[in-house]
Structure formats: C-alpha cells, structure tokens
Design a protein around this nucleic acid. Structure first.
Lengths: 203, 203
DNA sequence: ACCAGTTTAGGACAACTGTCCTAAGCTCCC
DNA sequence: GGGAGCTTAGGACAGTTGTCCTAAACTGGT
C-alpha cells in the first residue's frame, strides 16, 4: 500500500524533528507506525531513502504553506507577516525542538551528509518567496538581502528560544521582527503602513 | 596523568563540534588521542561525564575570551565589535559546522539531555557580557534585549551560512551587524561614533 | 630493589544499529 | 478455487555502541 509508505514518512518526519535524524532508529519508526522493522526495506532501500522521503514531504508542505500565505493576503507585507508568525503558530514545538529546517541542516552539515543540499533547498523556497514579496514592495535592489536577513533572524530566534526554553524571548523577537518590517515599509515610497521610524529596542 | 584527561577533553571538544555529540563515539575519541577506549573509565565514569568536561572547558575558554575582549578595548562599542568579529575569525569552521554553542544546544535540546542548561549557560555568559557593554553605552533600559538580539542574529547567520555553505552571506551579515551597531550608537546621546542613520539594507 | 598507587591495554559484555533474507499472509483477477 | 503479486512478520547478520573488568605496565617514594 502507498499509505504505509506515507505513514512511515510522516512518523519519520515527526521523529526526525523531535529527536534528530541520527537519534531516530528504525525501531523507533517501526514502533510509531506499528509495523515490524524488517519490512521497511520493501518500501525504502535504506535509512537515507527515508530521509529523502521526509525532505520531499517537507518541501511539498512548504510549497503548500507558501501558496496558502500568498492566497490569504494579496498584500506583500501581509504575506511577510504570515512568515514572521510561524514563530508564534509553532511556538511550543520550537521551544522544545528548535526550527525543523535549521536543526536538520545543522545535523546534516556536521555529518557531511549528501542530503544537506536538499534540506537547505527548503530554506531557499522561503528565501525566494520572501524575496518576491520584498520586490513587490519596491525593494528590488536589496530584496534578497532582506529575505536572508529575515530568515537568519527567525532562525536565531528559534535556536536561542529552544536553548533557553524562553517563551517570552521568542514573543519579543516576533514583535521586534514586525517592528523591523514596518520600519522597512516606511523607508520607501511604497505606502503600506505609516512609518514613523520608531527605532525602539529593535535597533 | 592530568594531561591525559585534558587531552581527552580537548579531542572530544573538537569532535563534538565537528560531528556532534551523539555521532562521536568513544572509539573516535580514543583514536584521536591515541589511547585504548577501555581505560576511559578511569578518567570519566561515562560519556556524559566527558560532555560535562567539554562544556566546562568551553565555559572557561569563553570566560577567557570575554576577558581578553574587555582588555583589548576599553570602549564598549569596540568590545561589541570584537563579539561580532568572531564570525569572521571563525569563518571557515562556522561554514562547515555552524556555531559550536548553538549546534550543541540544539542537539541537547532534542535529546532532552540534562546538560542542556549547562551548555546554554555559555550563551548566558555572552548575553551578560554584551548586556554590560550596552549598559555602558547608556542603553540600560533595553540592554538585555539588545544583547539577546545580537546573539540571535549571529546565531542565525552561522546556521544559514553553514546550511548554504555561503561565505559571502556570512560576510554580508557581519557588515550588517556592524551597521546595526553604529545605528544603535547614533540613537542615543552617548557620543561614540557619528550616527547619520544610514538605514541601508540593514533595516 | 621493592612496593603501593596510578595509569594503561585489551578484551568481554549486552544492547542496539542498519541491512537483508525467507516464509507466511493478504488481495485481487482469472 | 487457484494462483500471481504485493505486503508483512520475524529473525539472522555483522558491525558498533557504551560500559565494565582484569591484568599488565608504569610511577614515585623508601
């Protein structure tokens, strides 16, 4: 059945996020889906193949998420706010396990794993989508830098929040990112919000 | 000998950074220091004890580093610039293995390891030291937020740089952090540099 | 030269890892 | 009802893991 394959990938997806790739064994995944570990090789030829499946699933989900954000708001600023708000939506898992994309990339980078490029491609999806939004806001010159900057800040916020298990820090960073965004918008002719240049704790 | 103990910890320190804690075995450390793996238990009662030793070493080194930065420049802004510049000084290892502190915390958080608090304390050392510098710059009100913000940004820069193996992104983030700092200094009466409020790609 | 204490090598150990094999069960078409 | 093909369970496998033990080698003081 194809649904068995999907069940394995979904369980692995969750476990890889919660425990990491290396720390998740076949036995763990088997227990999670209620199958004997022996017959995994009928569906996947190796553990790396499961990882490939998990990354493919995450890429697909990321694409759907970005499409949803695009559909929910026509305004590029609102779309960027949707991105910022994943930190709030996924607050609890982030506090426990960090960012799913970032922590996987860190692990794969250390292991010199060939799937690193695939995993980092999820970052690229966010990067390209964010860049498109900044371009739509009239920041074509530095759209990619702004996108990477936003990605890096959310990444750092997730890492520190999980290291400290500090929920209020995460909430403050979300606010700070919104201030930063409003600040960005106020800088250029494109009128989207009124930018009084607050320059509070965010800078 | 005490030097054997130190040699084990130093090798473990390097390997934990390059491969991660879980992915580093006793055999790996034994090979690195040229000892048989059996007698490790004469120096450490478990692998976790080695981790404790590594974290203690890193804490000590961090303390020395901060003291050195404090000694090198009396100016708080210069001290903060020293912090920003570890990203440049350690550019190559960061591109390959990310931030030593951040990646260890992420791994320990996923493993629900009791040493997480110890490892995160290294972040706290940087945080407190940075906060003191911002306080000296007359930003007592938001010194801790500024410190955490700087920590988060450097953390995100390291993570993304290693995920993408992108050296120029890392260099751009270092520049951006310096711009941000100059921006900070220009905001308040404390005259340290002339703040023309550039507001380039950094905001 | 001897002895007590420290340090080492080497291997035993049980548990676990990813991988692979085989035989049984299942499903669906003829 | 029978048979082909897909799916499963269960276990074998070789290798590795962290842990622990024992006996040898070394050390320094007398």
């Amino acid at each position: 059945m194809n649904s068995t394959r999907a069940a394995i990938i979904e369980a692995a997806d969750r476990l890889f996020y919660q425990r990491g790739y290396r720390d998740t064994s076949f036995a763990d995944i088997a227990a999670a889906v209620g199958l004997s570990r022996g017959n995994f090789y009928h569906h996947f030829k190796s553990k790396d193949a499961i990882l490939d499946g998990v990354i493919a699933l995450r890429r697909q989900k990321t694409g759907e998420l970005l499409a949803q954000w695009s559909a929910e708001s026509a305004d590029p600023a609102g779309r960027i706010r949707s991105f910022i708000h994943i930190l709030a939506v996924n607050r609890d898992p982030i506090l426990e396990h960090g960012c799913p994309v970032g922590s996987l990339c860190v692990e794969l980078a250390k292991a010199d794993h060939e799937a690193l490029a695939d995993a980092a491609a999820i970052f690229t999806m966010f990067r390209d989508w964010l860049r498109a939004q900044f371009e739509a806001l009239g920041r074509a010159d530095d759209a990619d830098e702004l996108a990477m900057h936003l990605l890096a800040r959310s990444q750092g916020a997730a890492t520190l929040a999980s290291a400290f298990h500090d929920r209020s820090f995460l909430d403050r960073e979300i606010e700070s990112l919104e201030t930063w965004l409003a600040h960005c918008l106020g800088d250029r002719p494109e009128p989207q919000t009124q930018g009084a240049h607050p320059c509070s704790s965010s800078c």
